[in-house]
Write a protein that binds this DNA or RNA. Structure first.
Lengths: 159, 159
DNA sequence: TGAAATATGGATAGATGTGTCGTATTTAAT
DNA sequence: ATTAAATACGACACATCTATCCATATTTCA
């Protein structure tokens, strides 16, 4: 849904927001969020170029939050990393539906819109308020995949 | 949101559903959906192993639909290709929140749930009904990414 | 001024997703 | 039986995502 890297970015933004404007080094951020040190730096650089964090070099330096957690949504942050694009036109050049999408792409685009609205409805502050406990890391629950074709089977696979 | 491959799978399932039980060769499906012939075969094989299509080899053969379009949802089809998994537990072993997720992962999981519900609410038949016009292909509209940190800037980048 | 701490940026490596190719196997028509 | 049409399957190529490593630039402190 969102990339691993985008999720890492969110973890680090939360950690920075919890620091209340104090700088945290990439090393500290890495430890608090369980993102590998080198990769954490890469992501922080992207967040820096997008002006969501500010970096300070040298002893005593680090990264600090450069945005208002109340006005910064998950949508804002995720799209620093992921494209988060919508389906808008049919590039196939099929004249039959210039200007409108076929049912498939209209549906997929509407679904994408729902996802975007969800991400837009959540601010960094929203996450802070219920997140005073240290962050957990995600894990994937495998939804059993039936092999019946009508949704009522029992064979499952792992992927 | 869903992978390119999963979207190809949906295109081909629609084409097969429109064929009303008649077999279509991989070549025909490829042409109708603008998926490259070789890759189309790969995807059709996955759909076949999941029992959503049936393959018939030899002259006069091809692929035909093996499920009821009224009962088959986009969720069913997409997860043949994509994991579509939920965040369920914190594997980090941090004892503080055993059994419950922190705000970040709870939010992301809830967002994932919304997406899954959307896909579950749409059947193959739903797409057919408004899709008698041939399918279009998707294209990505780039959402402008501001570099302000407060969501009110104007500089944009392409990615 | 030197040393230590810190971020920056480029190069590289591994994993996964996307796409192509060649050969084998099955089936139907003749 | 033979042949043509079609799928099955494994190997390979390429791009992108994820992650690591190294050399360099900047800043602070002693």
């Amino acid at each position: 849904m969102i990339s691993t890297t985008a999720e890492y970015a969110l973890r680090m933004m939360i950690a920075l927001a919890e620091a209340n404007g104090d700088p945290l080094t990439s090393e500290q951020l890495s430890r608090r969020t369980d993102v590998s040190p080198d990769y954490a730096v890469k992501i922080l650089q992207q967040l820096g170029r997008a002006k969501y964090v500010r970096a300070q070099r040298g002893r005593g330096g680090g990264f600090r939050l450069a945005c208002d957690p109340r006005q910064t949504t998950l949508f804002d942050l995720v799209r620093v990393i992921d494209p988060l694009s919508r389906i808008s036109t049919c590039p196939l050049g099929r004249k039959e539906h210039e200007g409108r999408l076929c049912a498939l792409h209209a549906s997929l685009d509407r679904t994408t819109g729902v996802l975007h609205d969800e991400l837009r409805s959540l601010t960094l502050q929203d996450l802070l308020e219920t997140s005073r406990a240290p962050m957990c890391s995600p894990c994937d629950e495998v939804v059993p995949l039936t092999f019946e074709g009508n949704g009522r089977g029992d064979r499952t696979i792992r992927r």
